[in-house]
Design a protein around this nucleic acid. Structure first.
Lengths: 249, 249
DNA sequence: CCAAAAGTGTTCCATCTACACCCATGG
DNA sequence: CCATGGGTGTAGATGGAACACTTTTGG
């Protein structure tokens, strides 16, 4: 067997940035339309290149700062996984170190360098997948049963997003769901503090059921230990004002 | 602010390879003593360099083949995380893509290229950490409360293993523990099939308590759904022979 | 028949589920 | 004072923990 070439791959950082629309009560993911090769014209997740003097999580934070002007600290990101399939990007070998980012705000969007357009896409649950929808634009998510191996072997041609970003998004949502019952960091998209109603709305969305199916009283009892009362209430509409909570660390 | 240099880092694959000693009932981790810089003479996890024509998980499998001569398929490895701290290795910037590997056998060891010695180290639970012990050699594990940030800031000088391998081992054991109640893939170290007694022994070790504290009857009821009876029994000693089970997928 | 180890059953208690009820605010 | 939504309490169902008991093998 011949000795294999050891090369230096490009190392990119790719973020799944989550936010929340308090009006439509939708979980949002940031996608941008690429204005450069590879995948020019295609929509995909924000990506940057790792620099020599920064760790990958620092790069993930820098990416958020560059694309959205929002400064975050490192406890607002989580490493998702590293995607290394040989042909995942045409041309140069490129690894993707991926992170999940929970934005406590929903900033205005300005397309920056490398992007023709930027938009928030609503995570839209279907029976066995999650689509990403922004007005007229809609991207069908991978169905739940698709494994990474399946994706690279079969589904690759059918995906509408750049590279393997459909797989990255699916992986991210799966992770978020797994964490709902013990470390629901996704709730950070609701801001530093939130009402339990809002929390239940987000749970309902991710569990693919309606808010009314999650009993208020029981939700407090089963998940209350994860929250901490901030102590003040906020009279916002009709009915009794809700207390405000924050995630315990 | 000046533009930062975008370089191509070295990308290494580092494995936490688990096995099991059926005689001493110990969980084992493979360490080797380096015969090359950096960290010459220090003990550390098996590491290789990612090649141009292979994915990271393929490289993890190749590493096992090279060091142990054991051929595995990709469902016997799991991505652990990617370690990218800027100064984690002196000299060249090096990223570590880490994998966990569960060996269904305990192969004989032969030091190969780049290693002065190779040994199995027993995961030895203490009150708030796990040490790695092999006869006269012993490495103190990081205590449970040390975060990654803590490690790189404070604990770095005190660690006895190469680079950040103490942190990688700690992260691996933490992951293994988290999975015990829903996806105990660590049980693969017991081979393709195993008795529930062996499973409880491994659980006891990882939960830092004695086997007698895990009730046989209750263990079946709480974790039985994770296993599948292979169907035959194996008369191995005195007492009623145990049925043999395997992990459900 | 006895010892040893595997496997089963039973009771008790904690926790979750469903649902009724009470509380605080706006109009 | 009534409508609206937030917050509390309670009875039944479910699942885990402790422990007694039965089964199957070797000697």
């Amino acid at each position: 067997m011949s000795e294999q070439i050891v090369e230096r791959p490009l190392v990119s950082i790719t973020n799944v940035i989550f936010s929340f629309d308090t009006v439509t009560k939708q979980l949002l993911v940031l996608l941008l339309q690429r204005s450069q090769a590879p995948f020019m014209g295609a929509w995909g997740l924000p990506t940057t290149t790792l620099r020599s003097n920064e760790s990958a999580d620092a790069a993930a934070l820098r990416l958020v700062k560059e694309k959205l002007g929002v400064h975050l600290t490192s406890n607002q990101t989580e490493q998702l996984g590293t995607f290394t399939n040989v042909g995942r990007v045409p041309g140069q070998r490129t690894l993707a170190l991926t992170y999940m980012v929970y934005l406590p705000v929903k900033p205005a969007l300005i397309p920056g360098a490398g992007a023709r357009a930027v938009r928030w896409f609503a995570v839209t649950p279907r029976t066995d997948r999650d689509d990403l929808v922004a007005g007229d634009l809609s991207f069908t998510g991978l169905t739940d049963d698709v494994s990474a191996a399946d994706f690279y072997q079969r589904e690759r041609g059918t995906t509408q997003l750049a590279a393997d970003h459909a797989l990255i998004v699916k992986t991210a949502l799966q992770r978020v769901r797994n964490r709902l019952n013990y470390a629901p960091t996704i709730l950070r998209v609701l801001g530093v503090s939130f009402t339990l109603k809002r929390a239940r709305e987000l749970y309902a969305l991710l569990e693919r059921r309606s808010v009314s199916q999650i009993d208020n009283s029981n939700f407090r009892k089963t998940h209350g230990h994860l929250f901490e009362q901030v102590g003040f209430v906020r009279g916002n509409g009709s009915g009794r004002p809700a207390r405000v909570y924050r995630l315990k660390d």
